[in-house]
Write a protein that binds this DNA or RNA. Structure first.
Length: 828
RNA sequence: GCGAGCGUGGCGGAACUGGUAGACGCGCCAGACUUAGAAUCUGGUGGCCCUAGGCCGUGGGGGUUCGAUUCCCUCCGCUCGCACCA
């Protein structure tokens, strides 16, 4: 082998083989070292890895190797999120069965991951399409059915015509399908849902516990859960008592005296019933026009507010005034009660609506005492809190006081209740597709919906089904599979042909890794509590309100089923930025992708890992830059030449343990070594600044390159430098460092060696440089002994020629001395 | 519209609790080695001024401070998230 040249292809795969054969990265169950669970979001196994994958796993890998060297017993598993549409679509287009395609993809994906040298515990690997895994999805579903957390409902659903399946609210982005970008339409259909709203309050409250999550993610979840407190009030409909009252929800009970009309959603059940006969055709026309509107357009705040008068009137229970009932296109039947009271003086939208249709406006909240807003002169609504006016007994109260008092009054009088509304809706999990977990339910004409008994799990997907892309789910056409006996009555019955949303799969996989082979339960409690919660979870921020909400919910369900004890799945969340090229996200359609496999072939895995970690801190986006990649390759080649080229100098020399007798260069190098250890340890372990840690390692390298030891004592410092460099660099460039370590005669694998510790004494220099300022402007610097006190430092500073020049003729008003940093003279 | 985050050299990015702005890398310039190139090594590299040295400089403006990229106010720009939520 050519020892002069850095040639990663010569040894990278060899080290990967040795690591694999030694089972080096398996977490130990019987081990009392402190435990850490590091996890990156598992991938959907498409045929090819992309740079986003390289990055997320590289971030995790540095942490894992670092923690292992720090003496932790680390769990770092990997698996595959293998159910989902692409494999099924490929089956329709190419006729390859999803299970075959998926198996191939997993195997090629896995070998690409291995080529990057990641320290995964492959013993615990599983794919979610494996019946050994998804049977537990079914088991969970049955437990949730028993607890009323899984239920069947008929609802208007988001329907993606391209994927031919329904989507949860979280999965619709700007009215488009999150996966394929097709416009989503609405469909009324029966479906299975999980009652995530039963945990809404806890999901909200426990956000407080997620101290080590990015604020942005916590905020997004809080907004998505969207708790709003208010009051539901009944407004009696005028007439002969044949109508039930209209329930409205409001968060602004304090403005109720200003409610001058009501608006119903067109779909509200009372809409046709309250409408007077002379208005009937107008209201019906309006309702059907609204129903025909594209839902994305309808729910856009920019679309015009329109309404029609129903001809009917209600009574404001507080003012006793007769107020008209309208129907409006902007009132949503799904939120609150599907009806609102309108307070035009204090709501922007109501204000515009009232002006447009000439409905009276009544001011009942003044910004402060003594102010006098008037409907005649107002140009916009006053939407803030203030002081009540024209509000009977509540006049003079603040908005907050009035909300409290009015809420209490409404409950006393029995005309309403204080309630809480949530933006979060139950999670619809039915998918009309094949490649997912079958929902374990049987439809029996006699017994209705019958859960599949536990002992019959898993309900496996049938292999032999037609993939035509038409006519609904392939399972619909799997007659033999769908045709079963009812477990209750033994009569003919039919399986549920819907499958579960694939977000179910990713909602608990992290727990399964703790006990991946368990055939009795999803996870054994003792093992779950041994490793959970996950200490560090790395993944993309695009999952802020989907995966990261679902799996928090699932964790609490698992806790309540007695499977584990913790309240939250993850302690620290690290979100990683995207990898771009030329300022745009890498994508096939833009043709700006960079293939990891080609990069590895050209530069080796270590260079690719180094570049992607050096370009920016983990949470920032990075732009791929071929020239910068070359730079990292040059750096590694420099390390190679430094150590491989100077082996003779350190052969048989032990690393220096102290530097008592040394001076000059050797002592400076000694200090640089310890400084590097200190900085790299802090950057990786505390600050997660994986990029600046590399910068410190580069500085150490430069110092060692320039160090020419004169005798054995100095050579022992060089030896220490080489070893330290390899230890610090190992998490980033595991192959290169193993190779050089073994060339140096080092024993064992580097991951088994203790991470270096710095000697605080070594960081202290004999002298320090003080910056000298005059009136805050830099005028010079002086070198003083490390133990120089204030007086000595000031004296030295004053006598610095340039400083003296600026002080001349001035009197010093103040002297500031920051030890180790600077001196500042304030003078005039 | 609401919420969150971010604006630093030609570029990616550093600067821990306010204390030398620009670490480290890319690029560029000069030099060494070489017949030449590649590779490598050394030095330089925010702008302006003729230099010792000085002035300006972290999106704009203002404030607090001996001292501000860092803290406060305000404006501008970009990114992300949510959005007729009553």
């Amino acid at each position: 082998m050519d020892r002069e040249r850095y040639s990663p292809a010569d040894f990278e795969s060899e080290w990967q083989r040795r690591w694999r054969e030694q089972g080096l990265f398996a977490a130990r169950e019987d081990d009392d070292r402190p435990r850490t669970y590091v996890l990156e979001m598992f991938p959907y196994p498409s045929g090819h890895m992309h740079m986003g994958h390289v990055r997320v796993y590289a971030i995790g890998d540095v942490l894992v190797r670092f923690l292992r060297m720090q003496g932790q017993n680390v769990l770092h598993p990997m698996g595959f999120d293998a159910f989902g549409l692409p494999a099924e679509n490929a089956a329709i287009e190419e006729g390859i069965h999803p299970s075959v395609r998926t198996r191939e993809n997993i195997s090629s994906f896995r070998s690409q991951m291995e080529a990057l040298g990641y320290a995964f515990d492959w013993d615990r690997c599983f794919a979610t399409c494996d019946p050994h895994y998804y049977r537990w999805n079914q088991w969970f579903f049955l437990r949730m059915m028993e607890k009323g957390l899984a239920y069947r409902r008929t609802a208007k659903l988001n329907w993606c015509p391209s994927c031919a399946t329904v989507l949860a609210n979280e999965q619709v982005e700007d009215g488009l399908c999150w996966r394929c970008g097709t416009a989503v339409s609405e469909r009324e259909m029966p479906q299975w849902a999980l009652r995530i709203t039963a945990y809404a309050q806890e999901l909200l409250d426990d956000l407080e516990k997620l101290e080590a999550w990015p604020d942005a993610i916590v905020t997004m979840q809080r907004n998505w859960i969207g708790r709003s407190e208010g009051v539901e009030v009944a407004f009696p409909v005028e007439g002969d008592g044949e109508h039930e009252p209209i329930q409205v929800f409001t968060t602004r009970g304090d403005t109720i005296f200003g409610a001058t009309y009501l608006v119903l959603a067109p779909e509200h059940p009372l809409t046709p019933r309250v409408t007077t006969s002379d208005r009937q055709s107008e209201v019906e026309d309006f309702a059907s026009r609204v129903a025909a509107t594209d839902p994305a357009v309808r729910t856009s705040p920019d679309s015009e507010k329109q309404g029609v008068f129903t001809g009917a009137y209600a009574t404001n229970p507080f003012t006793r005034e007769r107020i008209p009932i309208w129907v409006g296109n902007f009132v949503l039947s799904e939120y609150g009660t599907g009806a609102i009271m309108s307070v035009p003086a204090h709501d922007e939208r109501d204000f515009r609506f009232a002006r447009k249709y000439e409905i009276p406006i009544k001011v009942v909240v003044q910004p402060s005492v003594g102010e006098n807003l008037s409907p005649n002169t107002m140009e916009e609504a006053f939407t803030g809190d203030g002081v009540l006016d024209e509000s009977g007994p509540y006049t003079g109260m603040t908005s907050a006081e009035a909300r409290e008092a009015i809420g209490a009054f409404v409950e006393e009088e029995g005309i309403g209740v204080r309630t809480v509304n949530w933006h979060l809706r139950d999670w619809g999990i039915s998918r009309q597709r094949y490649w997912g977990t079958p929902i374990p339910v049987i439809h029996c004409e006699r017994d209705g919906l019958v859960p599949v008994p536990d002992e019959d799990l898993p309900v496996e997907l049938p292999q032999d089904v037609p993939f035509t892309g038409t006519g609904g789910s392939p399972l619909e056409q799997a007659e033999e599979w769908a045709d079963v006996e009812c477990p209750m009555c033994g009569g003919r019955a039919r399986r549920e042909t819907e499958t579960m949303d694939t977000f179910v799969d990713s909602s608990w996989y992290y727990a399964r890794y703790c006990d991946a082979a368990n055939e009795q339960l999803p996870v054994d409690k003792e093992k779950a509590d041994r490793w959970l919660p996950v200490d560090i979870y790395v993944g993309g921020p695009e999952h802020a309100v989907m995966h990261l909400l679902y799996f928090r919910f699932w964790h609490k369900v698992m806790r309540d089923l007695g499977l584990l004890s913790s309240d939250e799945p993850v302690r620290r969340l690290v979100t990683q930025g995207i990898v771009m090229k030329g300022g745009a996200k890498m994508s096939k359609s833009l043709g700006n992708t960079v293939s990891p496999a080609q990069m590895i072939e050209k530069y080796g895995a270590d260079t690719v890992r180094m570049f992607i970690l050096f370009a920016a801190p983990p949470d920032k986006d990075i732009d791929w830059n071929d020239e910068a990649v070359e730079g990292l390759y040059r750096f590694l080649a420099r390390v190679w030449r430094l150590i491989a080229g100077r082996l003779e100098e350190v052969r048989g020399i032990a690393p220096a343990e102290s530097v008592e007798s040394l001076g000059g260069d050797a002592k400076n190098v000694w200090r640089t070594i310890h400084q590097a250890v200190e900085a790299v340890t802090r950057d990786i372990g505390e600050r997660l600044m994986l990029n600046t840690a590399i910068a410190r390692i580069m500085e150490l390298t430069t110092a060692l390159v320039g160090f020419k030891p004169a005798d054995d004592a100095e050579r022992s410092v060089l030896r220490l430098g080489f070893e330290t460099l390899l230890f610090l660099l190992h998490p980033y460039a595991p192959h290169l460092t193993e190779e050089l370590w073994s060339e140096m005669g080092g024993e064992g694998f580097l991951i088994g060696h203790a991470w270096p510790r710095h000697d605080p004494e070594a960081l202290i220099a004999d002298t320090m440089t003080l910056v000298v300022q005059v009136n805050g402007k830099l005028r010079g610097s002086v070198e003083v002994p490390i133990d120089a006190g204030k007086d000595a430092a000031l004296e030295a500073a004053r006598s610095e020629p340039n400083v003296a020049r600026f002080l001349e003729g001035k009197s010093i008003r103040k002297e500031i001395f920051v030890p180790g940093r600077l001196v500042n003279f304030v003078a005039n």
